[in-house]
Design a protein around this nucleic acid. Structure first.
Lengths: 261, 261
DNA sequence: TTGGTTTTGATTCAAAATGACTGAAATCAG
DNA sequence: CTGATTTCAGTCATTTTGAATCAAAACCAA
């Protein structure tokens, strides 16, 4: 059997069943375990499936979203979130996109006096009972995996609001700009950028060089980036050229040797 | 069974039932006690559940009063909610207003194949990961105590949707019609009525004769009422005159003497 | 054919997950 | 209050899974 045929069959089976065990694939395809592993590795790198222990899942499946939810925010993410929260002034109107990093930012906004606009159910849930925060939710079709509202209704709602600052994460950053995995999401995020004065991007260093399905925007649309110090020199130059101001937090790697803290 | 699937199932069961015993999970999942403990530990660390002695329950502030309110949901409310859920056909587009009774209705819709439109964060949270339910959230200013979206943005969003059925609670019912305590809420609810084909009101018998701050609508705008048998004869006549069809569930009072159940 | 590359499958070792067991702590019954 | 029971955290051996390595097979071009 040819490589491409085998891989497309894996893809098809994963899409149909949402989740598939490695051993099942070995039997179904008649290939060795090593080969199937390599196929999964390749498909995962291409972003077409999501590898999990013991098999693979389809990115759109409900059972798969679990990984994303489970993943504890890394130390970098938390640091980035803290710094980002510090950049926000009391009284601002902040537009918060969905995502794990922005959720961390929201955690750091509790007790602050702000107006928050968001399309993320988890963030709304978190901030809904904060007495000092006036919360406006952007409605729309709720994407099951992440709990963010998308689509036409979301875009139209966003057209009616205006924020002084947008906090957004991203799937990947390359020379060509920002990327995200979902085209519906990208459409909504474009309107977010249009509805805000200042665009603050939050992205840990692992996002650089990553490319995802849909192109979101050019790099120069970003006003400000909060990232960790693991970022490569090449990207610093590129960001500088695109007129993006950089806020950098120490990575765990550079700080751990310093103290017991 | 694989790790993610197991944890995902734990999460689902906890979400649906509010609280779940460790032993129940051991039996349901066919895993060892140690494994389930580790799963609970991991999920707790991620903030997705809250461990308690003997099992796990929902995390978060909002969830907590959620559960508290749920436990307060009287037997009547639960019966009314069950019956209301039975009235809804698969494939319908249901508009669900906020409130404790409608939240109970939402609990009874899990696993159904429906399109649900709501402006209530607790309901959205509950239904967001139901694979068979397509969820549309109506955005707006989020009212802190109850987590419902209100105001101009909500009204405009509602103008853009259309539902075959509206499920709504109320603060009080008198000869003059329906009432609610919040005028922003009433404004939004009026648009809900306008955007739906059929108006199903859910209200236990204690609501009759109660009058609240803001007048919502006339009685004859209601198509269908689900209530308990504690309702007075006077009101039955009035509802009949207003052309409201009545679905009645047995109250605890009339049923308790029957059996040990 | 020959020499080189790519793909595949088997093997090996490390990491992770699991289940059974232990003693400690919390809870309950009397 | 005391003893019994339940629940829990930690340890350890076993099993499963995954990454790396290496040799064989298939493929390709000359």
């Amino acid at each position: 059997m040819l490589v491409d045929e085998r891989r497309s069959r894996i893809l098809k089976m994963t899409e149909e069943q949402g989740f598939i065990a490695l051993q099942t694939l070995v039997t179904a395809l008649g290939a060795s375990e090593s080969t199937v592993r390599r196929d999964l590795e390749s498909l995962d790198a291409a972003g077409l499936i999501q590898r999990t222990r013991g098999g693979a899942s389809f990115p759109g499946d409900a059972r798969a979203d679990f990984d994303a939810r489970r993943s504890l925010a890394s130390v970098e993410k938390q640091r980035i979130a803290q710094r980002t929260a510090q950049l926000i002034h009391d009284g601002e109107t902040v537009l918060l996109d969905g995502g794990t990093t922005t959720l961390e930012v929201a955690r750091n906004l509790t007790g602050r006096s702000l107006q928050v606009v968001t399309n993320s159910l988890p963030i709304a849930q978190l901030l809904m009972n904060q007495p000092e925060i006036e919360l406006i939710f952007i409605g729309g079709f709720v994407y099951p995996k992440t709990g963010v509202a998308l689509g036409q209704l979301a875009v139209e709602s966003l057209q009616r609001v205006h924020a002084t600052r947008l906090i957004m994460g991203t799937g990947g950053i390359t020379d060509d700009g920002l990327f995200n995995s979902n085209s519906l999401l990208v459409e909504t995020e474009r309107q977010m950028i249009a509805s805000s004065d200042r665009f603050t991007l939050v992205a840990d260093s692992s996002k650089f060089g990553q490319r995802a399905l849909s192109h979101l925007c050019e790099l120069r649309e970003v006003d400000e980036l909060v990232t960790d110090s693991g970022i490569d020199c090449h990207w610093k130059q590129m960001l500088h050229a695109a007129d993006v101001s950089i806020e950098m937090v120490e990575t765990a790697a550079t700080e751990q040797p310093l103290a017991g803290q």
